[in-house]
Simulated scan of single mutants.
Amino acid sequence: MIINIITLFPQFWKSFLSYPLIKKAIKNNILNFKIHNLKNYVIGKKIDDYPYGGGHGMIIKIEPIYNCINKLNINFNEIIFLTPDAKLFNQKIAIKLSKLKNLLFICGHYKGIDQRIRDFIITKEYSIGNYILSNGEISTLVVIDSIIRLIPGVLGNIKSAFTDSFYKNNYDYEYPLYTRPYNFKNMKVPNILLSGNHKKIIKWRKLKIFIKKIKLL
Results as ranks from 00 to 15, higher is better:
residue 90 N to R: 10
residue 94 A to G: 09
residue 95 I to Y: 10
residue 96 K to F: 11
residue 100 L to T: 11
residue 104 L to Y: 00
residue 109 H to T: 08
residue 116 R to M: 08
residue 116 R to A: 01
residue 116 R to H: 08
residue 119 D to G: 02
residue 120 F to N: 07
residue 124 K to V: 01
residue 125 E to V: 03
residue 126 Y to S: 01
residue 127 S to I: 09
residue 132 I to G: 02
residue 134 S to H: 08
residue 137 E to G: 15
residue 140 T to E: 00
residue 141 L to M: 15
residue 141 L to N: 12
residue 141 L to E: 09
residue 142 V to G: 00
residue 143 V to E: 00
residue 144 I to E: 01
residue 146 S to P: 03
residue 149 R to I: 11
residue 151 I to S: 04
residue 152 P to F: 06
residue 153 G to H: 09
residue 156 G to R: 07
residue 157 N to K: 13
residue 161 A to F: 02
residue 161 A to H: 04
residue 163 T to D: 10
residue 164 D to L: 04
residue 165 S to D: 14
residue 166 F to S: 14
residue 169 N to M: 06
residue 172 D to N: 14
residue 175 Y to M: 03
residue 177 L to M: 11
residue 178 Y to P: 05
residue 182 Y to R: 10
residue 184 F to D: 04
residue 186 N to D: 15
residue 186 N to A: 06
residue 191 N to R: 10
residue 192 I to G: 14
residue 194 L to P: 10
residue 196 G to C: 15
residue 196 G to S: 15
residue 196 G to V: 13
residue 198 H to A: 05
residue 201 I to P: 13
residue 202 I to V: 10
residue 202 I to Y: 14
residue 203 K to S: 14
residue 203 K to I: 07
residue 205 R to T: 07
residue 207 L to W: 13
residue 208 K to T: 13
residue 208 K to D: 10
residue 210 F to R: 12
residue 210 F to M: 10
residue 211 I to R: 12
